[in-house]
Design a protein around this nucleic acid. Structure first.
Length: 577
RNA sequence: CGGGACGUGGCUCAGUCUGGUAGAGCACAGCGUUCGGGACGCUGGGGUCGGAGGUUCGAAUCCUCUCGUCCCGACCA
């Protein structure tokens, strides 16, 4: 491709609307333009990278035995009524009526459509397993779209759905997809981790998220420093506490703590550490209040609470709501004598003689003991893991790091097949619901994640497999016949070997060409300029490490071809791996 | 939904408080000089100051409404 004919509008300055680096660079490097909130145009380079990732995804999905199809974006409401999600999904689902007043929606995901298809077309265990996927534009009317391609309303997603006859077969399919996902992100050249995750609103029995590691990620991951344990913060757990220490249970004692509401203030006032204190947090679980007890130095993990209670939504009560419910201002709440359902983190259960609110303004209680002074309805792991915790599997130290979710695989079970009555006949002629799984990859988000992970002050540093071009040839003097013909011949030579090459043939100053080449992140740069006339050499520079070498013009195409092939080989995966 | 900020040429922004009829840099077009890390000079084109209404002799500037964009928050007691 010739730069002079390419729609590649690079920007010197950073548009004010872009906050995060991937968004800034995608705009500056001429990959995307915004049409409206959360909706972006893919310019030629953006599309090139999108297609690269799609191709890796396709190859690995096909290799794992999945089949590609394409489902409609517009879906009828009746299917969503049938699954129950027409009412559950909320305003993220963009609804509208067509000219015949038929309620419809834009597909944010396709469980309903695919399940409907399979229930109509597949009736026997002999047709199973079946694994179907598509790569398609999804629409979710997000409350607050932001960060460019990271959280758009319209985005490109690979979504796959599997149908198996038995739990064991479904587990094998899940494992296959897990392997395929590892191969996909390795082949894209990204540093990532697969972590255990909460199943969230999609439901199902277990799931893993694939997280691209980047400090700017929105999610926190908990990773064991020695074994393979890794989990999303919502799901992460830690080594269970050892049993409560034996010893005297001292009598309750009420102490005045004027104006001390926060854990840190109370602890300091009483001369104790925050871990000798119990916090009482009031949550509303589907509008029903519940008090949650955690140690003073811990924080409630709302998703764990939600799962324990089987609630659809939990939220922290406001100060006013707490007062209305208990007659106690926040800061002085405690479990002793509290007239609310109680649940307790397992760490609280092993505490002895601790401090808690007295349910009276300006007073706390000393020597509170679970079991003696109060009973919790349920005891469970309800808190966020911290770096002070130990790995639940091997007991080693844990590390917290940030990541961007680019893939998510779920074992769904029979949630949708049951709701939509999608069944098959097994070998005994018995009717059974399909055991389903679903598997997503945010293809457009992966571009943003790749940039968050791989950039410097000059621009993007694309991993070779997903770069829009593998090499860029800079013709520094388009008006010089010798230089121009040399640049053209290197460009043509590489193209003939099947490489994707950009030729910068613009009548621009050299500085602009260097800057643009760095900005768009092309891995190999070939500069044809005065060194050619002086020494017969061209310069090759690698974007990632800045490594530079001069090559004789006559050997340039071959040497470069070797370098690109060697570079690509580093990301390929042998079939027996 | 709640809170904050901002809408001035393609981009980044000044001018708004204190009303007097629109500016800079970049980008774009032409000419000349330049040419290995975003050059320089001269000339030129381009803006109903987001929109509507109002106040005023006069509004980018003041008032009201409206649309759009960006950021923050979903309360750790």
């Amino acid at each position: 491709m010739r730069f002079s004919h390419l729609l590649l509008p690079t920007l010197k300055e950073t548009p004010t609307e872009a906050e995060v680096v991937s968004h800034q660079l995608l705009l500056r490097a001429g990959f995307i333009r915004k049409l409206t909130t959360g909706i972006y145009i893919y310019l030629p380079l953006g599309l090139a990278t999108l297609r690269k990732i799609e191709q890796v995804v396709r190859e690995e999905m096909n290799r794992a035995g999945a089949q590609e199809l394409l489902l409609p974006m517009v879906q009828p409401a009746d299917l969503w009524e049938e699954s129950g999600r027409w009412h559950k999904y909320g305003p993220e689902l963009l609804r509208f009526t067509d000219r015949h007043d038929r309620p419809s929606c834009l597909g944010p995901t396709h469980e309903e459509v695919i399940t409907d298809l399979v229930r109509r077309e597949v009736h026997s265990y002999r047709s199973l397993p079946l694994n179907l996927y598509q790569i398609q534009t999804k629409f979710r009317d997000e409350i607050r779209p932001r960060f460019g391609l990271m959280r758009g309303r319209e985005f490109v997603m690979k979504d796959g759905y599997s149908f198996d006859a038995t739990e064991e077969a479904a587990d094998r399919t899940y494992q296959k997809m897990n392997d395929a996902y590892h191969r996909i992100f390795r082949r894209c050249g990204l540093r990532f981790r697969a972590v255990e995750a909460d199943t969230g609103s999609i439901g199902g029995s277990f799931s893993h998220e694939f997280m691209v590691l980047a400090d700017t990620g929105e999610d926190t991951l908990v990773i064991c420093t020695s074994c393979r344990y890794a989990a999303n913060m919502e799901k992460a757990t830690s080594q269970a506490p050892s049993a409560a220490p034996a010893g005297e249970l001292r009598p309750l004692e009420k102490v005045e703590t004027p104006g001390k509401r926060k854990v840190a203030a109370v602890a300091e006032f009483l001369g104790i550490s925050p871990r000798e204190l119990v916090k009482t947090m009031v949550y509303l679980a589907d509008s029903k209040p519940v008090a949650v007890l955690v140690r003073g130095d811990h924080e409630v993990q709302p998703v764990k609470l939600k799962n324990l209670l089987g609630a659809v939504e939990v939220e922290l009560a406001t100060d006013q709501q707490v007062f209305d419910l208990t007659g106690v201002p926040t800061g002085y709440l405690g479990p002793v004598g509290l007239k609310l359902p109680l649940v307790m983190d397992r760490e609280v259960a092993v505490l002895r003689n601790v401090v808690a609110g007295a349910n009276e303004k300006n007073y706390h209680l000393r020597n509170v003991n679970p079991g003696r002074d109060f009973e919790a309805g349920q005891v469970a792991d309800l808190r966020m893991v911290t770096v002070a915790d130990r790995c639940p599997v091997c007991g080693s130290e844990l590390e917290l790091t940030r990541g961007i979710e680019v893939g998510h695989i779920f074992k769904l079970g029979i949630k949708y097949s049951q709701a939509l009555k999608a069944t098959f006949l097994d070998a005994e002629g018995k009717e059974r619901p399909f055991i389903m799984g679903c598997y997503g990859i945010g293809v457009s988000r992966t571009i943003a994640a790749a940039i968050e992970q791989n950039h410097d002050k000059d621009g993007i540093i694309f991993p070779l497999p997903i770069a829009p071009f593998q090499a860029v040839v800079l013709n520094l003097s388009p008006n010089d016949g010798q230089i121009t013909s040399a640049a053209e011949s290197i460009y043509e030579g590489l193209r003939q070997q099947g490489f994707e090459v950009l030729l910068d043939d613009r009548d621009e100053r050299p500085g602009s060409k260097f800057k643009d080449a760095d900005l768009i992140g092309v891995p190999f740069r070939v500069t044809v300029g005065r060194k050619l006339a002086e020494q017969g050499m061209v310069e090759v520079r690698q974007r990632a490490d800045g490594h530079t070498a001069d090559l004789p013009f006559a050997e340039a195409v071959e040497r470069l071809a070797e370098m690109i092939r060697a570079g690509l080989a580093r990301y390929s995966i042998k079939n027996d791996e």
